[in-house]
Design a protein around this nucleic acid. Structure first.
Lengths: 339, 339
DNA sequence: AACCGCGCTGTGAACGTGCACAGTAGTTGG
DNA sequence: CCAACTACTGTGCACGTTCACAGCGCGGTT
């Protein structure tokens, strides 16, 4: 082999390690992967050679032969603005990234808010760049989930994928019982005219939290006490203004997200209502916003950390060949100054 | 049984396209890449064959031979909490992702807040998984920037990388003149005792914005009017409390970030000072927080969109072989209710 | 007529890895 | 004593692509 290799230029390959360890490529590969059927002496020699050469496996070559990308996509199928307005998405992203980093699985970030982006994401995923998809999309009827299902690629949704339960894996909080906790808490505080601001009714969070509200209030949940938002801060503010107009005598409001609750607090402030003296306000998520409002928000803790952990677990399971499963996680009431 | 078969159908390769188009692999490759030295007839046949077969190039195989990953890493070298507390990071991430998606360049997200994460990121990048790095790290003295420089991999920093100017490319806002704009504005409002809450003094934003403040005030910038924060909301609140103690007669405060300004507003609220009647508050960044506080913040617009665009441009240039360059972008005063 | 350049095309290498398979030595069992 | 087995090791091939090179026909120049 008279091929002149200027070592300074190219990264060491498995060949270099094999040469340094005095074994063959196959042994190095076995030692680094399975570790089975390798003598202790060879194993040690390989590990030492890896250290001295600074060898790191070339992922492209590995992917080529294993037909696996060894990476995962985090797809945010929401309007652009959401990523940086709503801290929930950042937390999910953060959690999944961290969880996967520990397993040395890189995360590819892509957005699929617009039609163009959706097509691009589909094409990209179809190209086999990733082994699985963590899909964050609260809205139902997203065409992307169809595309991915057709591709036969493992997918885990965050929140129940309405219309795809049983076919698409997902991790979700138990929204309905969380909502019940909050409304029962408001009642125990002596509130009698309890309104609600829901999320969009085409999202599981919108539907389930409203259902929990109704579970507790029954006939008391009259239509004038129910307003809808889209999880954005301004929509929470607008919905609160609307509620104050329709039901000026309300003495509490359960808001389906902390971000909307922050908007509602602003509306109440502008209307001269004191919180919690005149109106008690309950949020949902226990995001970072909840402790930064004045007063701090009573809210329902969304188990984001467990959700991201479950999402990752469910995805890896599917990549291993297991069928799609679901995880429903419990929520918890967090009482602060707003109720 | 048939479950396994769905996975068994392999994606079309360049061979299949060549066969369908009645040409050779080489011609297909040329047609899809350069497009040079290909007859119009062959080009058309190839494009048609690509459409009918649904061919998408296998990136692993391409990377293997071209020695290029065709992807880029976004590295957040800040404590974990920052990503989801400070919207600036989300905006940067969002902007870079979008910018690169249009060029069909995937973005790998990684955090390097802790020592363990930093090592992992270094190892990962050294493995050649990416062609370049978008580095977001306000603090100076980050060892990661050394690692990356040693690896000889293209890097673009967000904000001036203190101690590496000229060696590492960066895009940054003109912090100093932005700070001047704000302090001059406060003076024009008749304020005479203008305090400031700075960012960490080991960050360019901390240093430069303080310098701009001093440019305008000169000897009036006495030490009792200067407090330091770390860009977090609670640090802004604590710094404001401290300033009120040291200089109870202050009538304005320039805060080096909107998030800290939101904390300062809370402290002023708790102290019974009215904004802007008693104390005018100016922020920095014009992030989403600025419009959600009560009152809405007068602030300095940080040109994030242009910064992300420049970061991407500077990175791609370097990947093409150009030397590292820098972009300084202008800021703009945005007057709202807090001054 | 021989030569050259030009535009286009096909072909044989790599790129670095994992895996199947064959092979070796040492141990065990009949 | 030989066969079978175990534990380990080395080697050829394939993965799908790009790139360098050689070959082709064709028209124009020497």
């Amino acid at each position: 082999m008279s091929v002149d290799r200027s070592r300074a230029r190219h990264r060491p390959t498995i060949h270099d390690v094999a040469a340094a360890a005095g074994v063959s490529r196959g042994t190095v590969s076995r030692a680094l992967n399975g570790g089975r059927n390798v003598s202790p002496a060879a194993l040690e020699a390989v590990l030492k050679a890896v250290r001295t050469t600074g060898y790191v496996a070339n992922s492209a070559a590995r992917s080529l032969v294993t037909q696996r990308a060894n990476s995962v996509a985090f797809v945010l199928a929401e309007p652009q603005s959401r990523l940086f307005e709503d801290p929930n998405f950042s937390i999910l992203l953060q959690g999944c990234t961290q969880e996967l980093a520990e397993l040395d699985v890189p995360v590819l970030l892509m957005t699929a808010g617009t039609e163009v982006e959706r097509k691009r994401a589909s094409r990209f995923i179809a190209a086999g760049h990733v082994d699985g998809v963590l899909l964050v999309s609260s809205h139902t009827g997203n065409p992307l989930i169809h595309d991915l299902h057709d591709l036969g690629i493992p997918v885990v949704a965050c929140g129940k994928p309405i219309g795809h339960e049983g076919r698409v894996a997902y991790a979700a909080a138990d929204d309905r019982s969380g909502a019940r906790l909050m409304v029962e808490h408001l009642r125990s505080r002596g509130r009698r005219r309890i309104a609600t601001i829901t999320g969009p009714i085409d999202t599981p969070g919108g539907v389930e939290r409203l259902a929990g509200y109704r579970d507790v209030l029954g006939d008391e949940a009259t239509p004038d006490l129910i307003a809808h938002g889209d999880y954005s801060r301004v929509s929470g503010e607008a919905a609160m203004v609307e509620l104050l107009r329709r039901a000026p005598d309300l003495d509490a409001v359960f808001v389906a997200s902390d971000l909307m609750a922050a908007g509602a607090l602003n509306a109440l402030h502008d209307a001269g209502r004191r919180v919690p003296e005149d109106v008690a306000v309950g949020g949902f998520d226990d995001s970072s916003i909840a402790t930064s409002t004045r007063p701090a928000l009573t809210t329902v803790r969304h188990p984001f950390q467990r959700i991201t952990r479950e999402m990752v677990r469910l995805l890896l399971e599917q990549i291993q060949g297991e069928p799609p499963a679901a995880s429903i996680l419990p929520t918890e009431l967090v009482v602060r100054a707003s109720t």
